[in-house]
Design a protein around this nucleic acid. Structure first.
Lengths: 115, 115
DNA sequence: TCATCGTATCAGTATATGATAATATTTTAC
DNA sequence: GTAAAATATTATCATATACTGATACGATGA
């Protein structure tokens, strides 16, 4: 019963949260809430560069938050689990009440999208 | 109805997720799930340095995730909202199913707690 | 097979983030 | 008031992160 050096639950959980903790990834996840999209559609929906989207999708895929399906030369992505959507909904609701605080929190800034 | 340059909902939401997206902060939040704790108690519970805990607490406080109450020379912190705990529970449940993926996700690493 | 389209990968770079150490602040007890 | 305890703040630094541009890969259709 020795829990050797495997990453602790807390570390994994933090990592999972970080999957959501970037505006680009969050935008992608949010876009996918309405249903599956191809990479190009995600690029269009999010106004991010294609390599950037692809990178974030790899991340989200590795983290198990989205699932990829190749269809011809297109790859369609969709959320892997209903709880992903639930998490988004729950934070939206929480945000409605703590928005001001989050806005003022200066420990970490929103990358480059200043203002 | 012009939504000028205020930070978008997505940016705020990402910021909120980042509040949870660090092992230290997550450990603090997790410790607070069982009830209010003073800073010293949090330091003990998390094995983090006092200034480090204090910094993260400021962050969590600014983000509205925890609330501070001064009692004598002690300051007691508690979770600000039930939904904070709910979020933790929901990701725990999600994690149970995607843990392997999160472990393998290499886009971002868990800071310094390697292995 | 070749050209093209859609997607993925990689190197390089600027920035954001978290930890530490030193120190300040506040409160209580004497 | 002074000392000590509890908490907060600040500067500094190493590392992690995300973006861009160039390019590679894979599938399709001619």
């Amino acid at each position: 019963m020795i829990t050797v050096s495997a990453p602790s639950k807390t570390n994994l959980q933090a990592k999972l949260f970080r999957g959501f903790g970037d505006p680009s990834r969050l935008g992608i996840l949010d876009a996918l809430r309405n249903g599956p999209l191809t990479v190009s559609e995600i690029v269009e929906a999010t106004s991010l560069s294609q390599p950037n989207v692809s990178n974030h999708l790899s991340c989200l895929r590795d983290c198990g938050l989205v699932v990829a399906e190749q269809q011809g030369r297109y790859v369609t992505y969709h959320l892997s689990d209903d709880r992903v959507g639930e998490l988004l909904a729950l934070t939206e609701s929480l945000l409605a009440d703590v928005a001001l605080g989050v806005y003022e929190c200066t420990r970490y800034n929103i990358p480059r999208t200043e203002k």
